[in-house]
Design a protein around this nucleic acid. Structure first.
Lengths: 129, 129
DNA sequence: ATGATCCACAACCATATGGTTGTGGATAAC
DNA sequence: GTTATCCACAACCATATGGTTGTGGATCAT
């Protein structure tokens, strides 16, 4: 089973049903039955989806009598946004097109094979994870 | 198999090895061997990871002789950022704490059961997917 | 020509995922 | 007290995933 935080979050978001549930919860908390209503799958399947979302801390559940209210946990989605935002610099500059790089390398064939590694100006490497 | 675009992307990003590869590629294109070097798993496993990343349009590959250069495709990560950014309103306002909502509901028990649904001011629902 | 290097395809395995049905505990409604 | 409703647990199934080993086609170096 995946253990690291971001992996669990991304995995939870990799299902359209779960993303749809998250979207629904932006309109406010809802019971399990309310969340299940729009879908054609079983209530148990929704229950499993909610378990994944809760495990990823994307939602929280709280019992109130028979009902189990679900609400979004904004901080975790924020982590996803922060992660992706970290790559903003890349798409802004849109640097290092592969075609351009290979063309550049070809025109510099005189370089020794040892320096055949990408001739790209080194920038601060993006944080791992 | 998952088919919709965002699901494929999130699934591809739900593995720490693949996210690490993406992070590495922010420093510029690299060959498969260069990408595999930091990891203790087999070259074939890396090859499979790259196939997933390519299938999700997170990277592109281009043969150059024996070598297969990989480069990041910024636009797809941007889609992830855009998706998550769509939820900015939520974490900014940090509205609809579940505890608060349930407390509010409890203090309004005189409401008819039919209106027991979340008494939350309706806002524009977040787009699905 | 020979051999080494880069890389991906295929087959296999263990586990996770997304769904099902069956069931039953609480709680609410009557 | 009975009955209906809300919800999750368990067992099961088919497929996907992340890894392995084995292999071999190209290409480069000698």
């Amino acid at each position: 089973m995946v253990v690291d935080h971001l992996s669990v979050t991304f995995a939870a978001l990799s299902d359209p049903t779960r993303r749809s549930i998250v979207a629904r919860l932006t309109a406010g908390p809802a019971t399990v039955m309310e969340l299940a209503a729009p879908f054609s799958i079983s209530q148990q399947a929704i229950s499993k989806h909610l378990a994944y979302l809760e495990n990823a801390h994307l939602i929280e559940r709280k019992r109130a009598g028979r009902q189990n209210f679900c609400a979004i946990k904004p901080d975790t989605i924020r982590e996803v946004a922060d992660w992706a935002e970290g790559y903003r610099r890349i798409w802004e500059n849109n640097f290092q097109r592969l075609d351009a790089l290979l063309a550049e390398m070809k025109s510099e064939k005189k370089l020794s094979p040892k320096s055949a590694k990408p001739a790209v100006k080194k920038r601060k490497e993006h944080e791992t994870q």
